[in-house]
Amino acid sequence: MKKHITIILIFFFTSLVYSQKMKVVNGDFDFIKDQKEINVEFVYDNMKLLKKNLSNDEYVKERSGDLEAKGKGKGKTWKKSWVASRELIYAPKFLELMNRDLLDKQGMSFEEDLTEAKYTLIVETIWVYPGWNAAVMRKPAKLTTLLKFVETANRDNVMLEITSKNAPGNRFGGTFSNEDRIGEGFAKTAKTLSKLIMKKAF
């Protein structure tokens, strides 16, 4: 029995490690090396959700309706947390992991509202799968983003463009919060991106 559980766990965590695909589609890393700070912006305008590729409005309507049917007020409460999670979970998770290696080892800071920074990293959310947790079984979130480094003063000047597909999001021990799982997807994206920058730029 223990052997079967071990095999299942190995398969589960291996699938998380290898499911993310990050690819440079345009530009190079030459501009990054001498920078001490990079401005970061998060964009959610055109993101799609679930396998049905719902718009944000469609997803919120569907999800809040389902929750409201289970209990009066639950849908409205979730809707507020869904919007707030962008500033309270997603952005902080991403920035924390970007700075963990790059700030400590290279003295390079990634922060929001650095309007004087020469370059800006635009983190555009393309697709989100929130995942689920049924206690005995669970499925991690998946996050697809477009990571675009542009000149702050001239956004049409794209220095580097990277696609990140299906970054897995799950917390050790599991979580019943969709937003927490998605936040871990942002953390995984940042961790992979920071390692790529460390490898290619320095």
Rank of each mutant, 00 (worst) to 15 (best):
L50Y: 04
L95N: 00
W78C: 06
D101E: 12
S19M: 14
K80S: 11
G73D: 09
L16M: 15
L54N: 02
F12S: 04
L95Q: 01
Q35L: 12
S64H: 05
V24M: 05
K72T: 15
Y18T: 15
V24F: 04
Q35M: 10
D34G: 09
W82S: 04
D104T: 12
Y90T: 02
K23S: 14
Y90E: 01
L50C: 10
W78D: 04
Y59S: 06
I38W: 00
D45W: 08
N99R: 07
T77M: 13
T14S: 12
K52R: 12
N26F: 13
G107P: 03
E87Q: 12
V24Q: 02
A84S: 14
L97N: 01
K74V: 04
L9P: 00
W78G: 03
K105Y: 09
I32R: 01
R86Q: 11
I38K: 00
L103W: 03
G107S: 07
M47K: 04
K79Q: 13
I89Y: 00
K79G: 04
R100Y: 11
D101C: 08
S85G: 08
K70Q: 15
S85W: 04
M22H: 04
P92H: 08
Y44G: 03
F94T: 00
A69P: 05
S19E: 09
L49G: 00
D66R: 13
N53L: 05
D34S: 14
F94W: 03
D45I: 07
I89N: 00
L95W: 01
A91T: 08
F31G: 00
S81G: 06
T77H: 12
V25D: 10
V24G: 01
R86K: 15
D30S: 13
N39Y: 02
Q35A: 08
R100Q: 13
K105A: 11
L16E: 04
V43M: 04
V60A: 05
M98K: 01
K70E: 15
K74T: 05
K36E: 10
K51T: 14
T14L: 12
A84H: 08
A69N: 15
L67C: 11
K21F: 07
F94C: 02
L49M: 09
D30P: 02
W82V: 05
F11R: 09
D30M: 05
K93R: 13
M47C: 09
F29R: 01
V60E: 03
S19N: 12
I10A: 09
E87N: 14
E68K: 09
F94K: 01
